[in-house]
Design a protein around this nucleic acid. Structure first.
Lengths: 202, 202
DNA sequence: AACTGCATCAAGAAATAGTATTGATCTGGT
DNA sequence: ACCAGATCAATACTATTTCTTGATGCAGTT
């Protein structure tokens, strides 16, 4: 019975950084040292409600989701993260306080993660990473804001169509349940919506 | 979409302790404070080879397995833990050294766990727990020894029959692969064994 | 040399779990 | 009274996991 082996390449992350701003070889070295690979299998938790989020996660391949479970037990997906995206609960990470959110894997997923201390370390030894992470967070912020706006101002149908625009690559990769939970409707209703959109007149 | 909620009751653990030796309400309080609930999903690692085993785990519901992967990539299950059993790599825990063993969940599993420091804390504040944990470890030791004996002295068929005696409740709860790996044969051979035992003459 | 107790590999079959669709019925807001 | 959407239950479909079977091999007995 064979099990998965962790193949430890930071190449995708280096490339990601390099596209934002070129790195010196010392900086590359730093990244290679401080980021650790980690494999999560489908359905595995990366972060569980009540735990402190102790790392920044960069998805190398696979797909994660971050979500909140409300009092009624319903799941609300805040964010997906596929290849070359970051996912963590920044609030919990910086405040070192228990998270209200969960992160788990929707597919078998490989991440590169860096712990709190090592991130501080990274900033100290490579000040350029302050810039990089600022930009990176700003990007996330922008798309979050867009999503919020989308959400408060639209009907389910509009939200679905806008999801299809912004995340069309996720459409045939994710189960509908997840998409429904992302745009805030029931899977049944999404099924009907889709149906209606395909054959618009009956 | 309903998901599992971490229902944070230490009741099963208190009951477990109480059956060994009655606890005062301060001691119950200690337990409630120091043991933390944790949910592991099927196939999720609790402990990975190379990591230090940093907690004692009490299974509230579900099932864990502890196993070693040998040089050829074969899995050997050392122990199962279902409701009201403990599982950890004691060697790694006390020596604070990297474990050679893996622990993962065979079913979605809820455990109550206590960290190294909190366990020391528990012993200090509630000396009675020294007794409790001594007894508990002794119990584990005895069943381990029995298992070893069983193993070195029997054929596959005998080992299977003895498994059925001692763990009959696990028989229709676990996949055969796991049982095979526990008694040290291939799943194929276990299949044939079972067949032979059902229809003894043909 | 043949037999017994097991392993390995490959292929299907069977069982289970996860996902999607559909109908019926309900609700709160316009 | 109507619309956007929820909830519940039943069924269908799909994918994944688990089990079985046959063929073959091999190391120790007898």
């Amino acid at each position: 019975m064979k099990e998965n082996i962790l193949y430890t390449s930071v190449a995708p992350l280096l490339e990601y950084f390099n596209r934002l701003i070129p790195l010196s070889s010392e900086e590359k070295q730093l990244v290679a040292e401080l980021f650790k690979p980690r494999l999560y299998r489908k359905r595995q938790y990366v972060l569980q409600e009540g735990d402190v989020c102790s790392s920044f996660n960069f998805v190398v391949r696979g797909c994660l989701r971050m979500y909140k479970i409300d009092d009624k037990g319903n799941t609300h997906i805040i964010q997906f993260a596929t290849e070359n995206w970051w996912l963590m609960d920044i609030g919990s990470f910086h405040g070192k306080e228990p998270s209200e959110l969960n992160i788990d894997a929707i597919e078998d997923t490989m991440v590169l993660h860096i712990s709190y201390n090592d991130l501080i370390n990274l900033y100290t030894k490579g000040p350029k990473f302050n810039l990089i992470f600022r930009v990176l967070i700003e990007n996330s912020f922008v798309s979050l804001q867009k999503r919020l706006l989308q959400n408060i101002s639209s009907t389910a149908e509009e939200r679905y169509l806008s999801f299809m625009q912004d995340y069309s690559h996720l459409n045939n990769r994710l189960p509908q349940v997840q998409i429904a939970s992302f745009i805030g409707i029931t899977p049944e209703f999404l099924s009907r919506l889709r149906n209606k959109l395909v054959k618009p007149k009956s």
